[in-house]
Write a protein that binds this DNA or RNA. Structure first.
Length: 655
DNA sequence: GCAAGATGCGCC
DNA sequence: AAAGGGCGCATCTTGC
């Protein structure tokens, strides 16, 4: 039986689900659920909730398109004595169903894709700011009832036609995810209040360093010509002009390194450069803290959003503006002058002090640690557990690299095993701090998805290795046309060698890329569908090819064929390595999904998850080993994969 | 006044 | 021959 509520909203008053999470929206004084529509295929009903025969839902399986919302509305009605408590048997979400079936969440786009029918959503847009029934004309009321019924009908049809294609485990993951968000997490509210005050103060200090905001009694030149906002690009450009330095390079187009060079060159002389970056970080934190406070329940817990099948590969994604999957790992430290500390070495040293001595060095005035805000409920403990190198393991399994898997099963670390099984290393036990070990690690992480030598230079740099430092200035190569020897730049020589060597020694992997690549290209004109080991399917629709203009090394334009497939409503370039990455990520997600359900079956509460990490709230007697054991299980559909996990009891969410 | 695009920040 | 990373969200600018 599908259930769909229509409620008052007003974009003018900023009272809508755009601005508020469902629970805050329902708690609000403006909340009014004025219409309910239900459909069980045979019968249809739409009207005011007060006129509904609620007992019709008793013992039934309920369906909603976005159950998080409709379930929250229903709970609120019960709380306000506007609806009775019903014992329904389950409540499924058809938005999650269609995300699984076709990566479309919204009702209209899903129905259009799956049924080829355009659903008219204009009635809802037309209800913006209107109170029921007085603000609706006679005909508008009829339209609204029809619209509500139509949504309930489509919700039911989606379930009727596609429900069976949704495997049991996925259905449970969907339900688990929605329950997680509705259950929420316990927040250290005292600390949150502190953080709000502190982050606001540091933000204000930072604004004083920005010349266009700093002096309210300046000559007025900022206010006259510019709109002085904290991160205004116009103000930044003008400031650069005034002090005679070039404008900052754009990170996304000119590269992180180029920006860093600029920063190193001009940062020390111009404190506002660092302040700009700090302000963005602080503002993000401050806004998040304030939002969290607004969502707190009386018991100090906070609901949150998490999207089942949020990403094309099936991974979960954050939602509702407080995204538990992308909060900073390291605390933000406030230094002796009341600003955000930016010296990474100093920060790391301070964090080490804290870890070893239990307290920060004197210069740390305050620490803003987002993760410290999330604590276990009273009488419970928190156990954080994450899968050990799941993606390289899955990659090895899919490529049939049994030698490597056997070594891992025998107890070697993934990287040590790789050096022996695939790179020809035969020496003694590797030292984890050695450059050789680091190099192996970045190869495993970086080269498995077909990165080229230039990309590998940046991957290595991110891993702390300058792979170009021993490159010769010049190398001599024969010209293919004349046969004469010519000199070319030696930059990247080492990187090229590593990449070539890696590929030579991993023929199964190279073949895996090539096979995926060629089957993708063969599906031009139709959809490319990969069946994952779990049985789940990954789709790339409407595969086509297209010509792109790029520059060769001399800057001359070159035409290049690329191949594209549609996912998440956009055509994206696909190639063997990229497809491999997707397949691996999706498979790792399925394995992790099995763990999430197993944890639940063992009686643990999974508060939420983050890609390969499960955050659990458990009975106090639970041990980390119990969790580790469950997280190390290997699903029967990927037999022989050595799965491993680490778990630890923590006072609060941490990494 | 709104939507879309560009840019940045944070995680895995 | 090589080969854009994914996600969400805030801020600011520009175009309609």
């Amino acid at each position: 039986m599908s259930v769909d509520f229509e409620t008052f909203f007003s974009s003018k008053l900023h009272y809508s689900l755009r601005n508020l999470i469902a629970e805050s929206y329902c708690k609000h004084e403006l909340f009014d659920a004025y219409m309910l529509s239900v459909c069980d295929g045979g019968t249809m009903w739409a009207g005011h909730p007060r006129d509904f025969n609620w007992s019709a839902l008793e013992g039934r399986r309920l369906l909603s398109h976005n159950r998080f919302f409709d379930n929250t509305v229903y709970n609120e009605l019960v709380k306000r004595n506007l609806a009775p408590k019903i014992n329904y048997s389950s409540w499924e979400c058809t938005a999650n169903l269609t995300s699984y079936i076709c990566n479309r969440r919204a009702l209209d786009t899903a129905v259009e894709f799956l049924f080829g029918v355009k659903v008219d959503k204009s009635a809802r847009a037309n209800a913006d700011g209107k109170h029921w029934p007085n603000d609706f004309s006679e005909s508008e009321r009829a339209t609204m009832l029809k619209y509500a019924s139509q949504d309930a009908v489509w919700c039911y049809r989606l379930w009727e036609k596609y429900g069976e294609q949704w495997p049991e485990i996925e259905r449970r993951l969907s339900t688990q995810t929605i329950n997680q968000g509705m259950r929420g997490v316990q927040i250290n509210t005292e600390l949150l209040n502190d953080y709000i005050v502190q982050s606001h103060e540091v933000k204000a200090n930072t604004e004083k360093v920005l010349p266009w905001l700093a002096d309210p009694e300046d000559d007025g030149s900022w206010n006259e010509e510019f709109d002085p906002k904290p991160t205004s690009t116009k103000c930044i450009a003008e400031q650069c002009r005034r002090v005679g330095i070039p404008s900052p390079p754009v990170k996304s187009t000119e590269g992180e390194e180029v920006f860093e060079e600029w920063e190193i060159l001009y940062g020390p002389k111009h404190p506002w450069i660092a302040a700009l970056s700090s302000w963005r970080s602080l503002n993000k934190l401050y806004k998040t803290f304030v939002l969290m406070k607004s969502r707190l329940r009386d018991d100090g817990t906070m609901p949150f959003g998490l999207k089942y099948m949020g990403a094309h590969t099936g991974r979960w994604s954050g939602a509702e503006r407080v995204n538990l999957q992308n909060q900073r790992k390291k605390p933000l430290l406030v230094n002796e002058i009341g600003l955000m500390e930016i010296d990474e070495n100093r920060i790391d040293a301070a964090l080490l002090d804290k870890k070893r001595l239990g307290k920060f060095p004197g210069w740390v005035k305050y620490s803003l640690d987002f993760r410290a805000l999330i604590i276990p409920r009273p009488g419970k403990i928190m156990i954080v557990s994450d899968l050990a190198q799941i993606e390289p393991r899955v990659l090895a399994w899919l490529c049939g690299n049994t030698v490597l898997l056997d070594m891992i099963r025998g107890g070697l670390s993934v990287y040590e095993a790789f050096s022996r099984a695939n790179m020809g290393y035969v020496g003694g036990k590797l030292d984890k701090d050695s450059d050789f070990y680091k190099l192996i690690k970045i190869q495993v992480l970086g080269l498995g998805y077909q990165a080229g030598w230039e990309k590998f230079v940046t991957i290595a740099a991110a891993g702390g290795i300058d792979i170009t430092k021993d490159d010769p200035e010049w190398i001599e190569v024969p010209d293919p046309h004349t046969g004469e020897t010519k000199k070319i730049s030696g930059y990247g020589k080492r990187s090229r060698e590593i990449v070539a060597d890696f590929r030579e020694k991993n023929p199964k992997l190279v073949k895996f890329w090539a096979d995926l690549d060629s089957s993708f290209k063969r599906s031009i004109g139709s959809d490319f569908i990969v069946t994952l080991p779990s049985g789940r399917k990954l789709s790339y629709r409407k595969v086509r090819s297209s010509i792109r203009l790029t520059a060769d090394k001399n800057g001359r334009p070159v035409k290049k064929w690329v191949f594209l497939g549609e996912s998440d409503g956009r055509h994206k370039i696909c190639y063997g390595g990229k497809l491999t990455e997707n397949v691996i990520q999706a498979t790792a997600r399925d394995i992790f999904g099995a763990h999430l359900i197993a944890l639940e079956d063992a009686g643990h509460t999974v508060l939420y998850s983050s890609h390969d990490e499960a955050i659990c709230e458990c009975a106090p007697e639970t041990t980390a080993e119990e969790i580790e054991l469950i997280m190390s299980r290997c699903p029967d559909w990927i037999e022989g994969l050595p799965v491993a996990a680490e778990a630890r009891i923590v006072p609060h969410y941490t990494k």
